[in-house]
Simulated assay, not measured.
Amino acid sequence: MPLVQMKDMLRHAYDNQYAVGAFDVVSLELLQGVIHAAEQCRAPVILGLAEPHLQHFDIELLAPAVEAAARRSSVPVAIHYDHGSGVEGAVNGVRHGCNGVMFDGSHMPLQENIETTKAVVAMAHGIGVPVEAELGYIPDNSDELVFTSVEEARGFVRLTGADFLAVSIGTVHGRLVGKPRLDFQRLKQINKALQIPLVLHGSSGLSDDHFRKLIASGIAKVNYFTAITDRVAELLRNNAKDADDNYLKLHSGVRESVEEEAGRLMRVWGSAGRAAEVMEQCQPWHGIEYMLKFNLPGVDAEEEELITRKGRKILMKIPGVREVMVGKAYNDSSSQRHCWQLRLASPAVAEILKRNHDFLGFSRRYLRDEATELTGAGYQQSKVA
């Protein structure tokens, strides 16, 4: 089953008063556990790659695994770039396969948050990617909570065009100390004012009843990380008590533990059993590959390499260009000696390429007229049984 449009997925959840779980993954064990849980529960799911976690794994290695798991899954999946720090982070997320991005400007003054969110939205919407923003401040236990204001939320969404809003209504990031004090009335007022899917961060430590009330008040996406990784850490500590355990035995049961807890939550949040209807309502998310074939007459090998480097650098700066592969014909009979294969996040990126000033200038200067109009062929990936 292909990746699906995250905006469609969360709109379905919002309209039908359930929530989709968004699980940040930092290892293959977490990834497999979450996907297996979603398939067992027949639930839509969001796989997250969080910018603050990038220090703990190589995104060049983990992101392809996340995308492969999503594309071969039997339930609808979206991939989300979580807690991004700006336009550059969002572009990086899309380049690595995310079809939804979050910009977290909650620590900024309101006007700066608005302006940066607008810039992220302009970039992302241009290539068909929805944006989650955050307003108010959801702290860890050491900072002071700043609740989301209803009036500020109304103006924020109107000015930025954000598709989803993470709201501060009493939760905290990380491990909850003490009992949660949730402002359900505030959440209901925000929901009434905005009528868009709302997002819950800092969900660790909440009860099943808390979740049900929050979802009934507009929460359509629940981010969940700390509690599930604490559960894994406890399992590892217990496994480590056996001094004879090797690495594989130490990690035994991790995937199953994640699967059990993620599946339980999917049932609590109401997403279990929704996969088929979500798939009917959601547009698939697919990239395209674009082939450019051309000649470089009168150019020696050194200049050819410089031209290739320059062109690739220009292309990789364009949001939504995921990869540029360059090659040459292996025999002399080919009418066009050079081929660039562009991997694009969405069909909209091909239209952006046709209007990109830097690439058009490069094409006219170095590639003559052959590539100026992007007269290559675009190919969309299809699934063959």
Score class of each variant (00 low, 15 high):
S346P: 08
S346Q: 11
S346C: 05
S346K: 08
P347A: 08
P347K: 05
A348P: 03
V349G: 12
V349W: 04
V349I: 11
V349D: 09
V349E: 09
A350N: 11
A350G: 12
A350W: 07
E351C: 04
E351K: 00
E351A: 07
E351F: 03
E351T: 07
I352T: 15
L353T: 05
L353A: 05
L353C: 07
K354L: 14
R355N: 14
R355P: 01
N356M: 07
H357C: 04
H357W: 06
H357K: 13
D358G: 04
F359W: 15
F359R: 05
F359H: 12
F359S: 03
L360S: 08
L360N: 09
F362N: 04
F362K: 03
F362Y: 12
F362L: 05
F362I: 02
S363P: 00
S363K: 00
S363V: 04
R365A: 09
R365C: 08
R365S: 08
R365T: 13
R365M: 09
Y366T: 01
L367M: 13
R368D: 12
D369V: 02
E370T: 10
A371D: 03
A371I: 02
A371L: 01
T372R: 07
T372W: 04
T372I: 06
E373N: 11
E373C: 12
L374A: 12
L374Y: 11
T375E: 10
T375I: 01
T375R: 14
T375K: 14
T375M: 07
T375V: 05
G376S: 11
G376H: 06
G378E: 10
G378H: 05
Y379V: 11
Y379G: 07
Y379L: 12
Q380L: 14
Q380C: 10
Q380D: 02
Q381I: 12
